[in-house]
Design a protein around this nucleic acid. Structure first.
Lengths: 336, 336
DNA sequence: ATGAAAGCGCTAACAA
DNA sequence: TTGTTAGCGCTTTCAT
């Protein structure tokens, strides 16, 4: 059964397609009588305008792309949900793309999104090769970065002050008396992690404590990897009394390593995460972590994106939000 | 900067647009020489065919919709990721729609997806009003249900034997010596939960134990609600020694309630969940749960969907997978 | 083997 | 106020 088109409506209502189009889009002048009549017919015929056809005329597709490392990672699935809600409330759909932080996937997905003429792209994944994005901006496809940034690129971005977040974590640990501290970081190509560690180390430095390179372990962003790395740390001769993990997944891995080796958290080992995902509320002990105000960030990013659809050559903003320490149970006073 | 069109390519290659089109789609006959030349030009001009335009000609949009209750719920975000991977490997994009299990949202999203001419819809959310879906099938839009079913509707569906899963949970608890058992269920309008409870109760019945209506608590599907309900259960005079929760979220709520009231799991209270999400590996004690073979299910469902795009009037399948008991730490022998 | 031209469903100038 | 018509970028006959 073919779908009803604007022609069917026009014929049925005894008017031209232009009039129907005007009625739909509230353009031009037309008598109330005709308008009502047309709407009635549309209703009766269950007419739904084809987005495809109107997009071909250069109108919007009302579809945006969302690039994130992995939807199944709670941090990003929570972002996806917020984006989706905002988008739907404005009539947009969102195509979710999990990139696994791989540039070739990023490139492939972006190409796909381009072909589908999405109106804009929200990027919440690291992109090493800025050229991929540069091409986009040159094609004047709207993009805004969320929880990431692309220095050297003229795009909107809204992110957390990761340096500050790292410092917050360090201060908390310091205040609990910890001195031997290690960190589990994502690969440093992930700039947000880099900043977090930098802030962490800075705060330590301010307190007169040097963070040794050997105490910074680079991991993939997975529970398994966090567990492996933390286990190694625990086995060390002079093992740390606290571990700062660059995200909740790694922190959970550390929690598991502690459990397996019989190390009590927080009595013997304090663990602090980053992101404040649902996971951090679910562990036992619940995870102390650094929260990013994600809902606000998504709102800001989305609004920026939508606005830049209309107004393409606006000054690019870089909005930095403040992180917050959420103290739960996985950190405690150092037992001397 | 306007995007390159097929006209640009044709002009540059000195051929007609039809020839370019043929070259792209491997249709018709054309000399290798011309073909190579055309591809070279496409490369040089960075030509990317517009999916929009070809969709308007009745071709596929290479976009599918995924309806689930909530992407931020790990069970569904894991599904979303699998769907996405399969889809992308076949050149499809997926539009994610979180319905919160509300029929009006389902309806709104479906309408949106229709307007965008998606090729098919994967439905992993309950739909109370089957009419919404019936309309779709009548319009010959391909849909397949995953982890849900729509009895009375001629659609493909792949799901787990929820009855069996419930029975598995009961048998496990029974084998540990539990007799006073309660259940936390989602609203019974969610048929999967209904089946789970039915299976659970059946297995109990077989063992000569009657499950009292008062021992079945109906909840929303959230940690908070699980906690609330479990806390009430724990406070009861003759409180149960084991709780079967219809999903991991509820089970985690129960775990939290136990922790707060100082009830030790599993020594004093056994808790079993359903779904085997990442959450169940993260809690402490780790959650015993019933797993659905989601990866296989998604694969099956996706293949069914893709196949039914070509072959619309095929016999509708109903594939039922077997659930599996995953024993972790939250269930144990009853202390008599 | 290649091209001309019609048409997919819609919007927007322009006529009437 | 309403209708006619020319595209948007592509696929697909049907000629050549």
């Amino acid at each position: 059964m073919k779908a009803t088109t604007i022609y069917d409506v026009a014929k049925e209502a005894g008017v031209s397609i232009a009039t129907v189009s005007n009625a739909i889009n509230g353009k031009g002048k037309l008598s109330n009588k005709k308008r009502d009549e047309i709407f009635k017919v549309m209703e009766r015929l269950q007419y739904k305008p084809s987005v495809i056809a109107s997009a071909l005329m250069g109108k919007k597709t009302y579809t945006i792309g969302l690039l994130i490392p992995d939807v199944s990672n709670p941090f990003f699935s929570e972002i996806a949900r917020s984006v989706e809600d905002l988008a739907h409330s404005e009539g947009y759909s969102v195509i979710v793309c999990s990139t696994d932080n791989k540039d070739d996937r990023v490139e492939k997905y972006i190409r796909l999104l381009e072909q589908k003429s999405v109106d804009g792209i929200l990027i919440g994944t690291g992109v090493e090769n800025a050229d991929i994005l540069r091409q986009l901006t040159e094609k004047s496809l709207s993009i805004v970065m969320i929880a990431r940034e692309a220095v050297s690129l003229k795009v909107h971005s809204v992110l957390t002050d990761n340096f500050k977040g790292g410092a917050l974590a360090a201060e908390h640990l310091l205040s609990k008396g910890h001195r031997r501290i290690a960190v589990l970081s994502e690969n440093f190509k992930v700039t947000s992690s880099f900043e977090r560690v930098r802030g962490f180390r800075f705060a330590l430095f301010e307190a007169g404590i040097a963070l040794d390179e050997a105490d910074i372990i680079s991991c993939d962003s997975s529970i398994r990897d966090g567990k492996r790395a933390a286990a190694a740390l625990i086995r060390r001769e002079n093992s740390p009394s606290a571990i700062f993990c660059c995200n909740d997944l790694l922190a959970i891995g550390a929690l598991q390593a502690a459990k397996e080796t019989g190390v009590r958290v927080p009595e013997q080992l304090s663990i602090i995460g980053f992101d404040d995902t649902i996971l951090s509320t679910v562990t036992n002990p619940a995870l102390t972590t650094i929260a990013q105000p994600m809902d606000q960030m998504v709102k800001l990013a989305f609004d920026l994106l939508i606005r830049s659809l209309e107004n393409t050559d606006e000054i690019k903003q870089r909005i930095v939000m403040q992180p917050e320490l959420i103290v739960r149970e996985s950190t405690g006073k150092l037992n001397v």
